[in-house]
């Protein structure tokens, strides 16, 4: 595949929604350990609303779809995940210009803009034990693979592996942002729920672009 069209993006969002539904209790259990036991329920509510909106009012192009996804997430999730995931998709929408097919480099640039939005909204840095710890290495791997001439599918698989590794690396970290930071040293030894859902997002993108989503 040369690029990312609106159908591929829809596959991505539906795939992410399905992973969140499947991992809902696991995400909530991770959040119960160091947060407030609602990450699975909140993301499930938000992604269910996103897929319902896609079915009810299917957007014409990638930009419109990303924008609609952002609006629905900001409106339906609440907590910290709503503004953070909503900002990610909103910045992705702003980084695209209404093209019907996003070139791999444009898609990568949009994801990068999304990550920067998350960082500016949440003020988290790498190593703070947040979703940034999965997304930042994933996008570095994506850029590196594309620069080496890899296909978008190959590059997203590399990104997904990096996101999983980044997620796993949050376990020993001491949280510095969000509710887990209230625990101080006691937050170490637990995998971060936000990094876990972010790794699912990257995995769903790889599956959607490979056509096996």
């Amino acid at each position: 595949m040369a690029g990312v069209d609106v159908e591929t993006l829809q596959r991505w969002l539906r795939g992410f929604a399905a992973s969140v539904a499947e991992q809902r209790d696991a995400l909530t259990a991770l959040d119960a350990a160091i947060g407030d036991a609602d990450h699975g329920a909140n993301m499930h509510r938000g992604m269910t609303a996103v897929t319902e909106a896609v079915t009810a009012t299917p957007p014409a192009d990638p930009t419109a779809l990303l924008k609609q996804t952002a609006t629905v997430l900001i409106r339906s999730v609440g907590g910290a995940s709503g503004p953070l995931y909503g900002t990610l998709f909103l910045r992705m929408a702003s980084a695209t210009g209404g093209e019907t097919v996003l070139e791999p480099a444009t898609f990568a640039k949009a994801l990068r803009a999304g990550l920067e939005g998350v960082i500016s909204r949440g003020k988290a840095e790498l190593g703070d034990k947040t979703m940034v710890d999965a997304l930042a290495p994933a996008l570095d791997a994506l850029d590196a693979s594309l620069a080496e001439g890899g296909s978008l599918a190959t590059a997203l698989h590399a990104a997904s592996e990096a996101a999983d590794a980044g997620r796993d690396a949050t376990t020993p970290m001491i949280a510095r942002k969000g509710r887990a930071s209230y625990l101080g040293d006691r937050s170490a030894g637990h995998q971060d729920p936000g990094a876990t859902s972010a790794a699912l997002l990257v995995a769903a993108a790889a599956a959607a672009v490979s056509g096996d989503g």
Binding site: I74, V77, G79
Partner: peptide
Amino acid sequence: AGEVFTSPVPD
């Protein structure tokens, strides 16, 4: 009012 233990939304 938000969901249980979840902030309400900007709208």
